[in-house]
């Protein structure tokens, strides 16, 4: 097999794996958007916040230590425990659910029936608030996150592909884990929204609030539920990206990669988010591989957005959205 083709295959695989994670993050957006018409700009910061909280909890940091020390003249820093990744993740998940509840009850419950742009603005406010809150609680320094996921080149794939093709594929163990976990979650979310009672209720709320109320669905419950799911998705994304490149502000920007995914897949379509995620993941890696060297690289920064833009012009409703034809 020619070398170029092998490289391309390796790139394709890496792209698919990145795409699964994009799809998961995009689902976080889609669920909130479907249930409440809110485009949650804060999704990225939620991932950052979740990762910071996870590190803080695992290392036994005292939250708001700086603030407390300044106010009371104390000298608190750590509780002195060191928790395992699993317990840390469980506790952080609880924090994210509490946050989902607070976000709904303190903000969005009061904005029902407002214009979408108002809701969007509120999520921008939320994003900056959470960014500040995260820094205040856990400090603004770059943190290392290690929940015990294996990292580094997968030796088995390397040797197997080398024996078969004479070229060893470089596939990172962390990426494999991220892909498997994200894929499981994506499937679980699909099954949940399609077959469970709460999933049915969620689709009902997405369709018509009044009708949903009349059959006994609590809108607030559904809203807290979708924000919790989004929080959980953010946590998973935060773990994967945070483990790879440290918990720092740029993490909140990766989640916005889900934006072009949504433009491709449509804001309300679950299958759209999945297919869109894969297209973006594969597309940006292949493009960087094939065209990147000619234009000086770093195409991953913009390729997804440009692809989405081109796509928008030809199919504004997304891959799976219904075409809107204006009645005249």
């Amino acid at each position: 097999m020619p070398d170029q083709l092998l490289y391309a295959m390796e790139v394709l695989l890496n792209g698919l794996m990145a795409g699964v994670l994009y799809a998961l993050v995009a689902l976080g957006f889609v669920l909130i958007y479907k249930a409440s018409g809110i485009f949650n700009y804060a999704q990225g910061v939620m991932a950052l916040f979740a990762a910071m909280t996870l590190v803080g909890i695992m290392e036994g940091q005292v939250p708001f230590a700086h603030l407390i020390n300044a106010a009371f003249g104390t000298d608190l820093h750590v509780f002195g425990w060191q928790l395992s990744g699993l317990i840390g993740i469980l506790l952080t998940a609880v924090v994210m659910v509490v946050m989902a509840w607070a976000v709904n009850h303190l903000i969005f419950r009061h904005l029902v029936n407002q214009e979408p742009i108002i809701l969007f603005m509120a999520t921008i406010g939320l994003a900056y608030f959470m960014e500040g809150l995260g820094d205040l609680m856990w400090g603004a320094d770059i943190k290392k996150l290690d929940v015990g996921l294996p990292q580094g080149i997968n030796g088995w794939i390397d040797t197997t592909t080398f024996d078969a093709f004479g070229y060893g594929f470089f596939i990172d163990n962390l990426d494999i884990w991220a892909t498997v976990i994200a894929a499981i979650l994506v499937i679980a979310l699909m099954i949940f929204s399609q077959y469970s009672k709460q999933g049915r209720a969620l689709r009902a709320v997405a369709d018509d609030h009044q009708a949903a109320l009349s059959v006994g669905i609590s809108l607030n419950f559904i809203w807290v539920l979708v924000w919790s799911i989004a929080g959980f998705v953010a946590l998973v994304a935060g773990i994967m990206w945070g483990t790879k490149s440290g918990v720092q502000f740029s993490l909140s920007l990766i989640a916005l990669k889900a934006l072009p995914v949504l433009m491709l897949g449509g804001f309300t379509s679950i299958p759209g988010a999945i297919v869109g995620g894969l297209i973006i993941g594969v597309g940006e890696k292949l493009f960087e591989f094939a065209i990147g060297p000619m234009v000086g690289g770093a195409t991953e920064n913009w390729f997804a957005y440009v692809l989405a833009l081109v796509f928008l012009v030809f199919r504004p409703q997304g891959l799976f959205g219904e075409r809107l034809i204006e009645r005249v």
Binding site: R203, A204, A206, D207, D208, Q210, A211, A212, S214
Partner: peptide, 8 residues
Amino acid sequence: NIALFEGM
């Protein structure tokens, strides 16, 4: 004014 789930 009829409130049904139009998409279902």
